[in-house]
């Protein structure tokens, strides 16, 4: 497990960029943290590192948004948000089957604690809100 401290939005984005360097494609990133912890900020950092030009907006309402990257091997960032979901037994319920295990995609799931069966290769990212000046990001 790696632990990072973040004092600003841009520091959270930089942590996300460090995480991207270790990705090969096909991974699932499970983001957990309360409202206002900085989950979407983290995803904005992922998007920047993958060379996505589109602005990342909250997928809360539509549950899933897909972005094309300009990365050499990872072609898509699939941004999922389970905020509105009660316990989901299966990620297939939200139409993720096409992208899980796809080596050209990275799937990042906000509020991942609301999904019951995450795949084995899932990378857990916990963003803990300490106070308005500090967040702790744990990657495991």
């Amino acid at each position: 497990m790696k632990e990072y401290k973040s004092k600003t939005q841009s520091e959270t984005e930089k942590i996300a960029q460090a995480v991207v360097k270790k990705l090969q494609g096909g991974e699932v990133l499970a983001l957990v943290g309360n409202l206002g912890a900085g989950k979407t900020v983290f995803v904005k950092g992922l998007a920047k590192a993958l060379g996505i030009e589109d602005n990342i907006t909250s997928p809360t309402f539509v549950l899933m948004k897909i972005y094309q990257t300009s990365h050499a091997t990872i072609k898509r960032l699939v941004h999922v948000d389970c905020y509105r979901l009660e316990k989901v037994d299966d990620l297939d319920d939200i139409g993720l089957a096409d992208y899980l295990h796809d080596p050209a995609s990275i799937v990042v799931i906000e509020w991942a604690d609301r999904v019951v069966n995450l795949p084995k290769n899932t990378i857990n990212i916990n963003i803990e809100y300490i106070n308005s000046q500090e967040r702790i990001v744990k990657v495991s």
Binding site: L35, G36, T40, T57, S58, T60, F61
Partner: peptide
């Protein structure tokens, strides 16, 4: 113009939750 992050209805929902 557009929102760069949350939608208005969503912001109301999330503030209600807080």
């Amino acid at each position: 113009g557009k929102t760069l992050d949350d939608a208005v209805g969503e912001a109301f929902d999330k503030v209600a939750k807080l």
